[in-house]
Design a protein around this nucleic acid. Structure first.
Length: 440
DNA sequence: AATGCTGACAACCGCGGTGTA
DNA sequence: GTACACCGCGGTTGTCAGCAT
């Protein structure tokens, strides 16, 4: 470990990037893609390490970045996501199109933290500072009683306004999830077991679901909720449970986390962004779902009702009690459907209609339109992929794949098409970028 | 005008994970 | 199985502009 090998090379520049360097890097990636980052600086004529080039591209140069201040909606979303995900900035960023993990991290550290403290909320635990200072994090505010009933779950919209209402530190959730991932020896944690398990639960949720609300044209979905497992025994310290909400977008992300130990179930942030993005149609949503649960690509897509049936939320209670793993799963984590929970929530789920293609259409900002325009270009490609029944998340290096992967790659033709919008889109900071486009 | 402080942002550093020879 | 290269992430530091004194 230690320093990246390319950093040993001599005469490498450090510090701020000059406009000339930006131009070189942009032109190179626009033309050839990044490929292997370590070879980019040499090919682009830059005296930087590949790592530095990658960072510059991801955080500043890539064309799908949304510049400017964070909207209130984005801020609320970040707070809520942080309550669930903790400092997993990349995962939080995956839910905020056009924002980088670095940007969100900086925003959190410089702004949101302060705001939360001013409101008397501990930004780490999302609990009232008084509670945190009391130092009693082991026992939940309700004394450990079961609050896993739907009525006790935090409503996402209210949680956005009051992060302190999240009943358990997010870090505990991470431990729970990580523990589950670590316990991959359990049959249910294996790829096949997990697929079977998830599929079973998915089907069961549809059968028992009363949560399909066709009238909910907005398609809002709640976040995964934290709750305390009820089946740990009254005299045992309740452990945090994970209620994975109907948001396939987020659900995929966390599923990916859950099954990190298993490559077949490891899904990147790209998927979480891509799925709802490409999910302008039921088909594409289903494609994304299939890719996660491992169904063959030629399975017929479920009906709208089936898809919205996902809106049953799953509650995972980690019973790491004295008896070890809890009975039926043996993995220390249990998923169970809690029926309908689809009303409200602040997260606009792109509706299952063909014209909703933005992954998270935050409203009211001029950039949004530009952003979705950009996405439309990208998703036409992803749609083509689906029409050809190609694996959606197969070869990361393919050009089509790159088009929808905003993080690491670019799509030259599309960029050229988007160029006239670029300067408007990203303001003065990107004027030189647009100049570079013109030169291509 | 000079200085110091602060916030926002950009970039670096170190580490873990993964793929491959 | 091991070493290595590479990628990605999160924490930290550096830089700079704006503001107050």
């Amino acid at each position: 470990m230690g320093r990246h090998s390319c950093c040993y090379k001599q005469k490498l520049r450090k510090g701020l990037w000059s406009p000339e360097e930006d131009e070189k890097l942009l032109k190179h990636i626009t033309k050839y893609g990044h490929g292997c980052w370590s070879s980019v600086p040499k090919q682009a004529g830059l005296q930087r390490c590949g790592k530095s080039c990658r960072l510059r591209w991801i955080n500043y140069l890539r064309p799908d970045l949304k510049r400017g201040t964070f909207s209130q909606q984005e801020e609320d979303l970040i707070i809520e996501l942080h309550a669930v995900l903790g400092n997993r900035w990349s995962q939080i960023a995956a839910q905020l199109p056009g924002r980088t993990d670095n940007e969100i991290k900086n925003f959190w550290n410089s702004c949101i933290k302060k705001k939360l403290r001013q409101r008397g909320i501990d930004p780490t635990t999302h609990k009232p500072l008084a509670d945190t200072q009391a130092g009693d994090d082991k026992v939940p505010p309700n004394g450990g009683q079961n609050i896993s009933g739907a009525d006790d779950l935090i409503h996402p919209s209210s949680a956005a306004l009051d992060p302190s209402s999240i009943p358990k530190p997010a870090r505990s959730l991470m431990l729970t999830v990580d523990k589950f991932a670590a316990e991959s020896s359990n049959p249910k944690n294996s790829a096949a077991g997990a697929q079977e398990f998830l599929l079973d639960r998915f089907v069961a949720s549809q059968e028992s679901s009363s949560s399909c609300h066709p009238s909910n044209s907005l398609g809002f979905f709640p976040l995964p909720q934290l709750s305390y497992a009820s089946d740990c025994g009254a005299n045992q310290t309740p452990s945090v449970g994970l209620s994975v909400a109907p948001n396939p977008l987020l659900w995929f992300n966390q599923s990916g986390r859950l099954f990190d130990s298993n490559p077949e179930f490891s899904c990147s942030g790209t998927i979480s962004t891509l799925v709802p993005s490409a999910s302008g149609s039921t088909l594409s949503t289903w494609m994304g779902l299939k890719s996660v649960i491992g169904l063959p690509p030629d399975n017929p897509p479920p009906s709208c009702a089936a898809l919205t049936g996902i809106s049953n939320y799953w509650e995972a209670g980690n019973c790491s009690n004295s008896s070890g793993s809890s009975g039926n799963t043996g993995s220390g984590i249990e998923l169970r459907s809690n029926g309908s929970y689809f009303d409200g929530g602040i997260f606009p789920w792109p509706d299952l209609t063909p014209d909703k293609d933005a992954p998270m259409q935050l409203q009211g900002e001029p950039e949004d339109l530009k952003w979705s325009e950009y996405l439309q270009g990208a998703f036409s490609v992803s749609a083509a992929i689906q029409n050809q029944s190609q694996p959606l998340y197969g070869d990361v290096k393919t050009e089509s794949r790159v088009a929808v992967d905003g993080l690491g790659t670019c799509y030259p033709n599309q960029q050229a098409q988007q160029q006239p919008q670029a300067s408007d889109m990203y303001g003065k900071d990107f004027q030189r970028v647009s100049v570079a486009f013109e030169q291509i």
